[in-house]
Simulated scan of single mutants.
Amino acid sequence: MFVDWFLLIYLTNPYMTTNLTFEKLFFALSLTVAVAGCGSASDKKDETPQDSSIVATSITETIPVPTGTTEVFKEFDWTTIPQSNSEIGAFPYVSAPAGFYIQEKDSYSESKTGYSHLKDFNKLIIFNGQSFFNAEGKVAELKFRRKDENAEWNQYGFDSSVDKYLASIGAKLLAKLNITKAQEDFLNKDDDKAIYNHIIGDPYNDPVRFYALNHPKGKIMFQVSSNTATGEIGVVELADFEQTIKAPTAVQMKKDIDANGKAILNINFDTDKSTLLPDGQKAVDEILTLLKDNSSLKIAIEGHTDNAGTAARNKTLSAERANTILKSLTSRGVASNRLTAAGFGAERPLVANDSDENMARNRRVELVKK
């Protein structure tokens, strides 16, 4: 029917007969026959749906549907990492490949310690392909350079040496990561420098490789990054945080004020806020006891910060924290004429802000006798 209809139009239309080539006619006829062969929906009513069901099932099995997101922190499952008894030497457990050296933190000279930078307690953010993990403990950063300054950087040689060495000591490759926008927003939501401070290299442009080593010397994790110009390794030997700051007591505060004219306190607040943490509130409770036991004592509450952040923000923050303490004391019965509050930001450091430990010392509150 369809073929007859087409031939009738063709033979009675002079334009088509003069302009359609035989090949075009043959193609059109073939297409028409194919369409006719398909039939209408009504012609298919009696067919079973088995074939379409099979196709749908095979597609589902071939293309797995994502079941979650990687924007989450979870505890790391060390039972998935077999213990290794390989010889690994001393921390940081990695040396430079032949032709390379580990540089000092702030210069191109060769490191004498085996690392570029060391932090007694810090963290590396580790990725296992499914979630992130805060690996806390002793952290070393290693930056590598070519011994021959005129030699071309050999990324393949560097990567091969590092990856094969880590495999040889029993370290397991967990994942490779190029930071996505969603992961960037997740990791930096509370600290816009979290990725910069806790993942080595440039994970936005160069994939970072993550390894875990379960060893009698400890649980150790590695970050490895390289590109066509440089290579870096981050190493963390996991350890629990050991609190070395003791809660100040009213008795000790009084001794310090009598001896030095002031008491220096490490009072903990929320990061970049003036909200007291629970142990910070306990310290304020001791200040209250001090003032109640010494009714003639008048003090200036002075807030201080480290030098991280802008000078203006640090000064504002330190003043807000000092005023938080003042308001807490006056709300519980201390006369306001016995207290003043001021913030000095990073203007009066106790020590140089050149390490995490020193920066922690500079983040303080001083009770100065008036």
Rank of each mutant, 00 (worst) to 15 (best):
V3F: 05
W5M: 04
N13A: 15
T18D: 07
L20P: 08
A28R: 11
G39P: 03
G39V: 12
K44C: 12
K45I: 10
K45F: 09
S52Q: 07
I54T: 14
S58H: 14
I59L: 02
E61S: 01
P66W: 13
P66K: 13
E71M: 08
E71F: 10
F73Q: 08
K74C: 09
T79I: 08
N85P: 05
A90P: 07
V94M: 14
V94E: 07
P97H: 13
P97G: 13
Q103A: 04
E104P: 01
K105V: 02
K105C: 08
H117P: 11
F121M: 07
N122P: 12
N134S: 13
K143I: 10
K143T: 04
A151W: 12
E152P: 01
W153V: 05
D159C: 10
D163E: 12
A167F: 12
S168K: 02
K172Y: 01
L173A: 15
K176M: 04
N178M: 14
E184P: 05
F186W: 11
L187H: 13
D191E: 01
D192C: 01
D192W: 06
A194S: 03
I199H: 12
I200L: 11
D206M: 15
V208Q: 08
N214S: 15
K219L: 06
I220P: 00
I220Q: 03
Q223L: 13
N227L: 10
T228F: 04
A247W: 11
D256G: 03
I257C: 07
N260V: 09
N266C: 02
F269Q: 12
D270Y: 15
S274P: 11
T275A: 06
I287V: 15
L290V: 13
L291F: 08
D293R: 06
A300E: 02
D306G: 00
K315E: 14
R321A: 04
A322M: 11
T324A: 09
S328A: 00
R332T: 01
R332H: 07
V334E: 10
G345S: 05
R348P: 01
A352H: 15
D354A: 03
S355Q: 02
E357K: 00
R364M: 05
R364N: 02
V368E: 09
K369A: 06
